[in-house]
Design a protein around this nucleic acid. Structure first.
Length: 460
RNA sequence: UCCCCAGUAGCUCAGUUGGCAGAGCAAGUGGCUGUUAACCACUGGGUCCGCGGUUCGAGUCCGUGCUGGGGAGCCA
């Protein structure tokens, strides 16, 4: 007999004489002469209720099954005579694959997220984390589907890089040199004797690679891990996270914003359609307003306004902010939250930021003051996308790099793309985990990553 | 890196003015019942985060370190 997953079993329209289930015991309740066993196999949120009669030849052992034990059950699927579930399985055979001892840490009650983080290897066995990671899987698939349906090509950008890309944050060094005694030259570490012959780091962004491929394949995207060695202690930052980075040739900032809005709406609708059982758990136990938030994101047009207009709104708001608002200063978290959560109450896109607070590759606008940058802000999460139209004019780009004191030689290949068939092009970075926080209402980024990496924490 | 909060049973927490270490849940045992976070009874379970200090006496007060959490900065 072939094993059937519980997700499929529960969708059955008719009773079945023979089914084979493999999974883990969530709870057991004994009655006179038989036991109810709730079995979960991870395929969906719901358990299947097993009715195990005392006539089973190993009932003695079955009646001692503990939470977390692995079992194989052969039996028949019947309509449940009790309330609470549509189907149940009358067990003909219960094979105990392995018994979880009393030290099994997961109890039949709610645990705190902080405690579950200390047992991150077991937490996917809980309802909440099982649901979170099923949604993570679905969301990954939906991202590939979104791009494939629009004829984007998937690019694998390198994990180990020789340049620090955009100067975005602190880097993790990659080296095979002896830490205690590295070779020296003129008092400094001699990286010419390192594995790659020069300094190497873990990537902070696949953007520069993606730009090169956009100028060859047209529309491309990357979707992979990125690393930041920042000593951040917040619920929105981790050292290792995944980023989705589309890059489009022959595309200006407006087209870029169009795609950003389209993908957020598409993914939100997709999850609403495909993961409703899991979503309902979050709507019930994690964030009561989740459904209205998601429907708001999926259906409302994102408000677009320039940085200059945003600054004016903030100045006229009459609200006291901890940080000053003035043209040329970056918007702080409190400002972004005010705009997204109080003023507009829906997702918004802010564009045309002052050039002095943005990286070198963003395209200089005609006013010579601002660059064609855009950030997408959503309620509760804040910045979820950062992107720009890229500077395609080589003389403007080189001038900008000079102003910022960047070593142009290291970027010879990047500049080459502006020498040979340069065209206007745009792209953005979408924080995958932040998106997942939006979708689930989970408020700590550490709880949407299987094994999160944060300062001082790499246990698993 | 800065600011704030917390650390007591497996988990979640209480612990008064400095005076014998507590509850609920979980676990174990027994009972009961088509149960469903089942229910009832009993039992076991403690480096009160570490180190140092004050005191006749410290879970409690002081100093210090560590860990966790929240917020800020940085960003996705």
């Amino acid at each position: 007999m072939k094993r059937i997953k519980i997700s499929k079993l529960l969708k059955s329209n008719v009773p079945k004489d023979e089914v084979l289930i493999k999974g883990w015991v969530r709870t057991r309740r004994d009655s006179k002469g038989f036991s109810f066993i709730e079995v979960n196999d991870g395929s969906c949120l719901k358990n299947i209720q097993i009715v195990a009669d005392s006539t089973l030849n190993n009932y003695q052992d079955v009646s001692r099954l503990s939470t977390g034990s692995a079992v194989v059950i052969a039996g028949k699927l019947v309509e449940s005579t009790g309330p609470g579930q549509e189907w149940e399985v009358i067990a003909g055979r219960v094979e105990i694959v392995s018994l979880a001892p009393e030290s099994y840490p997961l109890q039949k009650k709610r645990h705190t997220d902080e405690f579950l983080r200390t047992i991150a290897h077991l937490r996917p066995r809980t309802n909440k984390y099982g649901a979170a990671f099923r949604i993570r899987s679905e969301l990954s698939f939906a991202i590939h589907k979104f791009f494939r349906d629009r004829d984007f090509k998937y690019i694998h950008s390198p994990i180990i890089t020789g340049s620090d890309c955009e100067g975005a944050g602190e880097l993790f060094k990659v080296t095979t040199l002896a830490l205690g005694n590295p070779p020296k030259k003129d008092g400094k570490t001699d990286y010419s004797r390192d594995f790659f012959g020069k300094e190497a780091n873990l990537t902070v962004s696949g953007q520069l690679s993606a730009e090169m491929f956009a100028l060859a394949l047209g529309d491309v995207y990357t979707f992979g891990p990125t690393f930041r060695a920042e000593n951040s202690h917040t619920s929105r930052h981790v050292a290792e996270f995944w980023m989705v980075e589309p890059e489009m040739a022959f595309c200006d900032l407006e087209g870029n914003m169009d795609l950003a809005e389209e993908i957020i709406k598409y993914l939100t609708s997709y999850i609403l359609d495909e993961c409703i059982d899991d979503l309902e758990l979050f709507a019930k136990f994690v964030d009561k307003s989740l459904m209205s938030t998601l429907e708001n994101v999926a259906s409302s047009d994102f408000r677009r306004l320039s940085y200059t207009a945003a600054v004016k709104i903030l100045q006229k708001s009459g609200k006291k902010f901890e940080y000053d608002i003035a043209f040329g200063k970056d918007l702080q978290t409190e400002h972004e939250r005010y705009l997204a959560e109080h003023h507009f109450k829906k997702p918004l896109i802010i564009f045309d930021y002052p050039k002095n607070i943005k990286p070198f590759y963003m395209r200089l606008n005609d006013d010579n003051q601002t660059v064609a940058a855009m950030d997408v802000l959503v309620p509760k999460i804040g910045e979820i996308i950062g992107g720009s139209q890229r500077e395609e004019r080589i003389e403007v780009l080189e001038k900008r790099m000079d102003e910022m004191g960047m070593p142009k030689d290291d970027y010879w290949w990047y500049l080459d793309s502006r020498r040979f068939g340069s065209v206007e092009h745009s792209g953005f970075g979408l924080g995958f985990e932040r998106l997942l926080m939006l979708m689930t209402g989970i408020s700590n980024i550490r709880d949407v990553i299987p094994f999160p990496r944060t300062p001082n924490s790499i246990e698993f």
